[in-house]
Simulated assay, not measured.
Amino acid sequence: MGRSRSRRRRRSRSRRRPIECGESDEDPNALFRIELLPGRRRDPYPSFDLLVEEGDQQVQVPHVCSRPDEAYVIRVTNDSRRHVACAVTVDGENALLRDGSLIVAPGDCRELQGYLVSKNFVGKEYVKEYRDFLFGKPKVIEESGKNEEPSMPYTAYGRIVCEVYEAELDEEVDSDQELRGQTTHYRGAGLHGSNEERLVPEGKKKHFMYSAVTVQGSRSTIANSTRGRWWVRGRTKLRTLELRYRELHTLMLLGVDRKRLGLEEEESAVKYEKKEEEDEKPKLFDDSQIETCDLTNEEGAFWTTETAPEKVRPVDVS
């Protein structure tokens, strides 16, 4: 059984096809895009191009507004005429298994919903387990006397990097070929665990820039078929895509207009609601009217309403 399977694999590898030729007249900067979505198959978050310092120069990097305790999805779009393999890192940590890649077909897009924690082949399907991306905050710690650096550099927080490589056709899996019994590969703390809590030393913490961090959310599963063509990452790097996320107050300090962030509409709605509540509240008294009670009436107390006298104007004493 093992020999026949390996023989089929050798035959399938021998049927390699040439890779699609690149387009010399196309701008590589416009062929690939990375976006953040609030959920699968939903509209992306609005992005804001901001100037940030990278070494001795300033570069323009798109930013999105992070929502605390909300999950998000990374979408990579390929508008070229070749298959590409994408290596995605979130907060400086690989989002895929080992040297795994996100393969995007020509003119297509792929969505990555979280950290890939396992991949197991079962018959003619392979099941992937994810831990959803979730906006959070790092834990602040006190610096030790030895000035030891944390396990993950604090400068990586709030950064999503996608390195786009040329994809190569590895093999084709026959329709009757099974991959049963393959070893499951785990990452980080395993399928049921979570990454170590990201730490930022208090002395080096910049709340202005590094107040947001991605943590692991709930678990989800996706099953894919093993039939068809299998692509792997090549050696040619096409482009590096970067997207950063910051909290609301940080984007305002970086110069993003309040109206673009939707704050004007939210504040006006709150003011309108407060005005309606004030209008609905009963008034305790009216300054323009005064009520008097006549206790000398033979029938008892008699109440009358009269116009209040004018208030005395202040006198200017020289």
Rank of each mutant, 00 (worst) to 15 (best):
M1H: 10
M1E: 08
S4A: 14
R5T: 09
R5Y: 04
R10P: 00
S12I: 07
S12C: 13
R16Y: 05
D25R: 03
D25N: 05
E26G: 04
E26V: 09
D27M: 02
P28A: 03
A30E: 15
L31C: 04
F32R: 07
R33E: 15
E35H: 12
L36F: 10
R42K: 07
E53T: 14
E54N: 08
G55D: 10
V61Q: 05
C65Q: 08
S66A: 08
V73P: 01
T77A: 07
S80H: 03
R81F: 06
V84W: 02
A87P: 01
N94G: 08
L96D: 08
G100M: 08
V104E: 07
G107A: 09
D108R: 06
R110Q: 11
Q113D: 14
S118R: 05
G123V: 00
E125A: 08
R131G: 03
D132V: 01
F133R: 01
F135Q: 00
I141P: 00
I141F: 06
E143F: 05
E149H: 15
E149Y: 14
S151L: 15
Y154V: 12
T155N: 15
T155L: 13
A156W: 08
Y157W: 05
I160L: 13
E163V: 11
V164T: 02
A167Y: 01
E171Y: 13
S175R: 14
D176E: 10
Q177I: 04
G181K: 04
G181N: 02
Q182K: 13
Q182S: 11
G188W: 01
G190H: 10
G190R: 06
L191P: 04
R198W: 00
K205P: 02
K205W: 15
K205T: 12
T214A: 04
S220I: 04
N224L: 11
N224C: 13
N224K: 15
N224M: 13
S225Y: 12
G228K: 00
W230T: 04
G234D: 01
L238K: 05
R239Q: 13
R239D: 13
L241R: 02
E242Q: 12
R244W: 12
Y245N: 01
Y245H: 06
L248N: 09
L251F: 09
L254Y: 08
E266A: 09
Y272T: 13
Y272W: 12
Y272D: 07
E273M: 10
E277R: 09
P282T: 06
P282I: 02
D287W: 15
E299I: 10
G300M: 03
A301I: 03
T307W: 09
P314F: 03
D316C: 12
